[in-house]
Design a protein around this nucleic acid. Structure first.
Length: 437
RNA sequence: GGAGGGAUGCGAGAGUGGCCGAAUCGGACGGUCUCGAAAACCGUUGUGCCCCCUGGGUACCGUGGGUUCGAAUCCCACUCCCUCCGCCA
């Protein structure tokens, strides 16, 4: 969440920043007023408590001095104040709660250098790779859901049979490819990042810390009986690893990576991009994550983008980098770069990575701080996260890009060590060769 | 699932009703000493809120309730950790 003190001190700047994300300035005015009331209520409560405490002390003293009547009188006054305190306490708690809830629903302030804009159409394409767009042959213009069936790699129907639509089921070489991609990526980052295998189900607090709750409850799978949430990204558990802790500046940056399944209800996206792997409820992803000092943030942000990009280059996939505009960034982000690969068969750009700098928005929610080397009081860390990469869509792009005239698929050399050297997915014996378009 | 023990400041850990925001040790930071360092000694060292803001006040001892004039301390519930038993990939 954003800093309530900043809201108090410089509400105009906060209004301007949030307006870039489409938040009405009156929301901020309302928050300022709620905060004012909450602080007043807390003050009243504190004063009452202090009086009760002082009177109680006198009761004790009077008792010890043997002044029973005096003690009795003081005790009665204290009791009356105590009743008042109870009410004041309730009011103060309620007022603070309203402020916190309001704060939890507000998105992060966008970074000054994030482009202006209202939605996806205003994102800025900062670079593309390779420099000149490759040309694709007819054999590459076959969508992965068809290739998947022809080569026995993907069985969406049986996935749906088990779990409903948009739950993919990979088979044979298709399943192996997915596993190879995860290992490939983890190996590439292993020198700089500690590998974590976090739980896939997390507590409500863990989801609130990243900003996925309470606002986006509809997007997540929830196990009601145990009040646990299926993680939409490894960013969620990784952010909470040091929840409530104070780190030492010398420990920063903390760099973590995790391969996990990611679960998304995609509730608002019914009917969109439903073919094949374009949009699925469960997918595997390698996530990079860092806790840093504010000074370290810009450098690490670019490092994460670089790492995701270099994987794409090794995989030989055409891609572009988008600098997301203020209106299109995720709730917690101050700055976001999206990486999209081109899938020639589906003829679409697919988002395969989103790298975000969340400033102290998540750290404040999760209460993660560090003690600066200067010895001053603890300050909130900054968090950064980035996919490197989301494999379902990479899988789709690889299979389409690598498809050859004979229907087989050639995979990049970089994956050879992870596929026992087999970089060609063969056409099964006896398969009916698909008519070329 | 059953039985028992526990949760206190940066860490360890004392504190069983008022004199406790909290002993002690350790860490970190500052100082004395030193050519420098170590050792030793001295000092400082949680967070939020409020105010008449070089200072003062107040709240916070896992979370939420309760008892009491008064709770870190007593009672209840919950969460988490540890030990033992049961079950189990």
């Amino acid at each position: 969440m954003i800093d309530i003190r900043q809201v108090r001190k410089d509400s105009d700047a906060v209004k301007r920043a949030l307006a870039r994300r489409g938040i009405d300035p009156s929301e901020v005015d309302r928050l300022v007023e709620l905060d004012r009331r909450a602080r007043a209520a807390t003050g009243t409560r504190d004063e009452l408590r202090s009086s009760v405490k002082a009177l109680s002390r006198q009761v004790g003293e009077a008792r010890r001095a043997g002044q029973t009547e005096e003690a009795q009188a003081l005790s009665e006054r204290s009791r009356a104040l105590g009743d008042e305190e109870r009410t004041a306490h309730l009011l103060a708690d309620e007022a603070r709660d309203v402020v916190r809830r309001t704060l939890l629903y507000l998105p992060n302030l966008p970074a000054g250098d994030a482009p202006d804009g209202r939605g996806p159409e205003d994102n800025v394409i900062t670079r593309t790779w390779p420099d000149s767009p490759p040309s694709y042959s007819a054999s590459q213009r076959v969508p992965h859901w068809e290739i998947g069936i022809a080569l026995g790699l993907l069985d969406m129907e049986r996935g749906a049979k088990l779990s409903g639509s948009m739950f993919p089921l990979y088979r044979g070489f298709g399943a192996r490819l997915l596993r190879a991609l995860t290992t490939f990526a983890l190996d590439r980052h292993a020198t700089a990042f500690e590998e974590i295998r976090p739980p896939s189900l997390v507590l409500t607090d863990t989801m609130v810390s990243t900003g996925h709750l309470p606002k986006f409850e509809e997007e997540a799978y929830h196990l009601e009986r145990d009040d646990l949430w299926a993680i939409p990204t490894a960013e969620v558990p990784l952010t909470s690893m040091w929840r409530g802790d104070i780190l030492d500046e010398s420990e920063l940056p903390v760099r973590l990576m995790a391969a996990t399944a990611c679960f998304r209800r995609e509730s608002g996206a019914a009917g969109r991009d439903t073919r094949g792997l374009l949009r699925v409820h469960e997918f595997d992803k390698v996530e990079l994550f860092a806790y840093v000092t504010p000074d370290q943030a810009p450098e690490v942000l670019h490092e994460l983008v670089d790492r995701a990009e270099s994987l794409l280059r090794e995989l030989g996939l055409q891609y572009r980098v988008l600098d997301l505009c203020a209106g299109d960034m995720g709730n917690a982000a101050a700055r976001t770069f999206d990486l999209e690969v081109y899938a020639p068969g589906a003829d679409q750009w697919l988002e395969v990575s989103s790298v975000s700098w969340c400033s102290d928005y998540q750290a404040r929610r999760a209460n993660i701080r560090y003690r600066p080397a200067s010895g001053s009081g603890p300050v909130f860390v900054h968090t950064l996260n980035g996919s490197a990469l989301a494999w379902a869509r990479i899988w789709a792009a690889l299979v389409e890009t690598g498809r050859r005239a004979d229907g087989s698929v050639e995979l990049p050399e970089a994956l050879a060590p992870y596929l026992r050297g087999e970089t060609v997915i063969p056409v099964p014996q006896g398969a009916v060769r698909r008519e070329e378009r």
